[in-house]
Nucleic acid binder design. Structure first.
Lengths: 238, 238
DNA sequence: CTTGCGAAAAGTGTATACCAGTTTGATGAA
DNA sequence: TTCATCAAACTGGTATACACTTTTCGCAAG
């Protein structure tokens, strides 16, 4: 490469004025690749390749990979190239167990703290999720659902007013959607139940009943948790 | 600093074969400064200054600061120099609430999983803590206590066999000892009670009773939690 | 064909230099 | 004193170089 020619990069940024840092760009880009399944478990993450693909230098790429490594989505070992993390059934079970504990706690706190605006937002999110399901059917609604569902849970986590709790839920207990779908029950089984559970959580929040909210959230998450008995099953390589 | 002389560094590393990376060195060094109170809330963290002090270049320093920022011990804002994080009473309360939830869960799991070797280690740790207290008295024993106590809790967390849980406890819910001592009850009040609680946790683990272990750990941590009544806090912008 | 070995190639870890953007601190005017 | 201004200081990011390790590949031996 020649000398200081970041003109085109600077152009992109200066147009926005947004000043999103290069690290943020790289982080969200790579994270998106993983969470959407565009990159699968075991895929190689080469710093130079990512740098040219994303349009930033190696430095912010390395920072982004380190963050993703800390969050468990990427596996880094010294001098080895990074790979997309693999999630075993045990990993999925662990994540859902911890999410149940922490999100249950969050829901309980949210019950006495959530604002009217946030509660309305939750109702709206659930309304849209159910509408899209009715309109699009079992499988086609899934793409939109994941995003809406993530916001549903995120709003409750935020309403708990416990910043560390919120951060842990957002960054340390994520499971790529593709992995979740691999291990969870089929959509036909869980979708209607999920909506009923969401409605119950809303009812508990509206009643400002912490114990109910916590229990309802717990039930919701434990119902999604792959059966522990399934851990006796054979390990199969795809 | 001078020119590229990493010869002595390489010498140290090659001797060990362990080859601790520069990032690890910087991370543990800075973390130690904060947790021990050698650097206090609000102190400035200048990359160049740290680099020369620790003997590595800016690059690993920046990585270390980013990790510490993610863990909440350091506050980084764009183009601003980093500062050591400040922990309000509310922060301390939040941390202990979350620790109680998660370490309680960990103790419950550990009850049915802990190895004989790990249990023996716990007994030994508690024995030493009590011996040092008897020998050194209220205040002098504190220095050694913090380290032993940290290992006591870490052994239980590891015995829970939940890697994400262990990582969260080790990296997202730390409170500098100085801050803890600022907000907690005076040593004279809590030390004997702490030892009694540790013994009860050991008894519950020995009995392999998960509910007891969880409850005992919960009681232990909630007893250290600063009185929630102190939540008549002042929101202040510095 | 398979296995094993060794060397080249690829890739990460760190140092260093440099510059742009921003904050910080000091100086000076009102 | 208070405020504005400007230079210095500092971080964010790029680029480059090189040491050290892993990975790959070809080649020889079985």
């Amino acid at each position: 490469m020649g000398n200081g020619l970041k003109n085109e990069t600077a152009k992109d940024l200066s147009r926005e004025g947004s000043s999103t840092s290069a690290v943020e760009i790289a982080y969200h880009h790579i994270r998106h690749l993983i969470l959407t399944g565009e990159m699968r478990s075991g895929d190689k993450l080469l710093e130079n390749q990512l740098a040219t693909a994303i349009g930033v230098s190696r430095t912010p790429i390395r920072e982004a990979l380190n963050r993703l490594n800390a969050e468990g989505l990427v596996v880094l070992e010294r001098y080895r190239r990074g790979i997309v993390a693999d999630f075993s059934l045990d990993d999925a079970v662990e994540i859902f167990r911890l999410r149940a504990i922490l999100e249950g706690h969050a829901a309980g706190r949210a019950a006495t703290r959530i604002s009217d605006a946030d509660f309305a937002r939750l109702q709206e999110l659930e309304r849209v999720m159910e509408a899209q399901f009715e309109e699009l059917g079992w499988n086609e609604h899934l793409e939109g659902f994941d995003k809406l569902n993530a916001e549903f849970h995120a709003v409750i986590a935020a309403a708990a007013e416990s910043p560390r709790l919120e951060k842990i839920l957002a960054s340390s207990l994520e499971l790529p959607a593709a992995i979740f779908n691999r291990y969870s029950e089929p959509v036909e089984v869980r979708t209607r139940r999920t909506h009923a559970q969401h409605r119950e959580i809303l009812a508990a929040l509206k009643a400002r009943n912490p114990e109910w909210a916590q229990a309802a959230m717990n039930a919701h998450l434990f119902s999604l948790l792959p059966t522990a008995s399934g851990s006796l099953e054979h390990e199969e390589k795809s």
